[in-house]
Amino acid sequence: MSTGILPPISARRRRTDRLMSGLFYAATGIALVPLLLIIGYLIKEGASQFSAAFFTTDPTGNFAGDIGGIRSAVLGTIEMVAIATLISVPIGIAVAIWLVEYGKRSKPAAIIRYLIDVMTGVPSVVFGLFIYVSLVETGIGGSGFAAWKGSVAISLLMLPIVARSSEVVLELVPNGLRESALALGAPRWRVIATVVLPTALPGLITGSLLAVARGAGETAPLLFTVQAAMGINFNLSERMNSLPLEIFNDVQSSNPAVVTRAWGAALTLVLLVLAITLLARIVAGRSRLKP
């Protein structure tokens, strides 16, 4: 002791340490088990569905016989999410720009930040209800359920995600860049358009893609705003099919073939969402702005 050496760690403490480390290992393993199980089971049940016909025919709605594929669901999801993206990404980024460039630490900016947090926490089903009362029930833009109303509901869900992630990225743009541009005489809007946004672009894309991935998988808002349809439909003021709703409806069927189609549709949806998520990661990896 007098030489400054610590007493040896007792066997009990050593055991506790090993036990707890083991528990941490185990917990991480347990957290990953569901992912493996889900992906594995999806591939097992769904991959056999993948065929040319599966992606090139529409669900027929027949109970027996030919039940059809999921073409209209895939197209509908892509169409509706694309429109939701067109609505939510520009607004989300605009709000983020306002927060970072104008609002900063002011009281109004704090209120908007708080509201964005509130929006993030709103359950998607409640957004669905909201769009139902304000757009569907009132029959705005044609009657009743319509694809564009579904897009609006999804965009409400995506908006806070885009705004939040864009704000974080815009904050990372070094102030030196802004000040250099301002010192050269550039007006504020040109600083934003030619310096801030291009610098932050990869980060903005990443945030938007993650929001798209989230929006593509949402079912609940579509239930109240679009409903399902069988065939392909490019008319935005009509009902439209979508992957999540196709799955939701097929699960509840008593026909095993329809349930199997749900697995194929689920695998398609997961692959779609994973592809977008991975793309977001790749773009993020290329960004020069690192937190």
Binding site: L35, I38, L42, A213, A216, G217, E218, T219, A220, P244, I247, F248, V251, A262, W263, A266, L269, V270, V273, L274, T277
Partner: peptide, 9 residues
């Protein structure tokens, strides 16, 4: 990234 309907399924 797994959609909630897939969790349900």
């Amino acid at each position: 990234a797994v959609p909630s309907v897939v969790y349900g399924l």
